[in-house]
């Protein structure tokens, strides 16, 4: 089945159920996991990206386009991640950050530079390749982070409150930019947030970490 499938994915800590998700996220669709802090949102995220600590017990299955991800390490999952902060690598230029994500299969300095340049142009950041990421504005950094994630050609995308640190007027624009790209590239995505506004904008189903439907007005 194409898309990201959370097949009775459950996480327990010391026997207590924290996460229980059973859902299919189709390409271009955004599933939102919403809840207050401490509700198990970040545990759900860790289960999908593959960074659960040894204190957690995972059951169920996670598949991406029919490929079983359940036991795989993070790097082999093909699941891209956008953090709450941009987490750009401070020692690399903007272009260096993007080239880090570019698959090694794309060979040749020229071809790689061109791919980086094209991605920057797509994000409205043409000519930013040699810039120091520390000199960018919050909105610019958010866009670079998204392009970096997409350049790794992920099969699915995880968004960990990626808009919460942006100021109000930037927030709407970046959100539209990200969601439009997800739809255009037909990537299944999971958005983790506590903001009803973000959940509404995502336009997909909204669940809490235990799989119960949540109304975005709440």
């Amino acid at each position: 089945m194409s898309g990201l499938v959370l097949d009775r994915l459950e996480v327990r800590a010391k026997g207590k159920l924290i996460v229980a998700l059973d859902a299919v996220v189709k390409p271009g669709e955004v599933l939102t996991i919403m809840g207050p802090s401490g509700s198990g949102k970040s545990t759900a995220l860790a289960a999908i990206i593959g960074t659960l600590g040894p204190d957690f017990d995972l059951s169920g299955r996670l598949t991406l386009n029919g490929r079983d991800l359940t036991g795989l390490p993070t790097r082999a999952r093909g699941v891209g991640l956008l953090f709450q902060d941009d987490v750009l690598f401070p020692h690399l230029s903007v272009g260096g950050n993007l080239a880090f994500a570019l698959p090694a299969a794309l060979r040749g300095r020229k071809a790689r530079r061109a791919a980086v340049g094209a991605a920057l142009a797509k994000a409205g950041l043409a000519g930013f390749a040699d810039r120091d990421p520390a000199t960018l504005s919050g909105g610019e950094r958010a866009r670079v982070a998204l392009m970096r994630t997409l350049l790794a050609e992920p099969g699915a995308l995880l968004l960990d409150e990626p808009f919460s640190r942006l100021d109000a007027d930037m927030r709407g624009r970046i959100r539209t930019f990200v969601l439009d790209l997800i739809r255009a590239e037909r990537i299944p995505a999971v958005l983790v947030t506590h903001q009803p506004e973000d959940a509404r904008a995502a336009g997909g189903r909204i669940l809490d970490p235990l799989g119960r439907p949540v109304s975005p007005a709440a």
């Binding site: 990206i49 690598f89 790794a152």
Partner: peptide
């Protein structure tokens, strides 16, 4: 060192 850098790298497909 912020472990999120390592998670970001791994999510981009980087080996340890």
């Amino acid at each position: 060192w912020d472990p999120r850098f390592a998670v970001a790298g791994a999510a981009l497909g980087a080996t340890p």
